[in-house]
Write a protein that binds this DNA or RNA. Sequence first.
DNA 1: ATACAATATAGAGTTAACTCGAGGTCAAGT
DNA 2: ACTTGACCTCGAGTTAACTCTATATTGTAT
Lengths: 127, 127
Amino acid sequence: MGYGYAIGEFSSIIGISVYTLRYYEKENLIIPERKENGRRLYSDGDVSWIQFIKRLKDTGMPIKEIQKYARLRVKGDSTLEERMEMLIQHRAVLKDEIAAMQEHLANLDDKIIYYKTEIKKKHQCAG
Amino acid sequence: MGYGYAIGEFSSIIGISVYTLRYYEKENLIIPERKENGRRLYSDGDVSWIQFIKRLKDTGMPIKEIQKYARLRVKGDSTLEERMEMLIQHRAVLKDEIAAMQEHLANLDDKIIYYKTEIKKKHQCAG
DNA sequence: ATACAATATAGAGTTAACTCGAGGTCAAGT
DNA sequence: ACTTGACCTCGAGTTAACTCTATATTGTAT
């Protein structure tokens, strides 16, 4: 048993379908090594990298943007500043989104309270 | 000048394109009255309703789900409980999402700090 | 009366992000 | 030897949510 994971194993470790993994590769997000026979060989580094990609996705970063980040990452240390800038930007967006969601939540709460009083009124059936 | 708004005016009040408004109508989310000549006539009630729809959308509720809510709303008071249930459900989902976002934010912060130290190292140029 | 802008419908086109199907290779077990 | 299952590529299909085009009417200003 050598090091690294075949695509199926990698897929079940990280919870992303093999279809999607191949799609991500086509989009240059994650490019694993290949064995002599042409089969993909994912490393432990790939595990953490794809988990970071997941995080970016889950926070609403579009694939085009993640692509840009991935391109910089491949270039190495000379792009550290630029990548940090991207994350700082993204962080700001995320903060705003959280604030907006919290406002939405408060609003939803109000609406639910309103529903409660309306339902109470309805069940009283006598003015 | 009667009451109500033509689609263009309504569109600019609420910030949704006329295309999208007609699409929402096709999907039965919001169905304005019509004038004798067939043109749409949106009311003030439609303003608050579409704003609520926006809120649901912004919190990630898919159109199919909003459709379901809209269908209940049209049925009137007999569906109050069911609608409230939907909102309570949605509220729970939203809360979880906010929590996840906050975790993502913390993680992003860590990554940014890591970048800062890496960049510092890089600029020292001497072990 | 005529031009122009806003509106109407039906249906086609777009974009993002997958998701799948067809057809082929290859290593391992029986 | 042969079947099976995981893998490969390429390209087509899907879904959600718009977005636009073509064509036709209609209301208002000159």
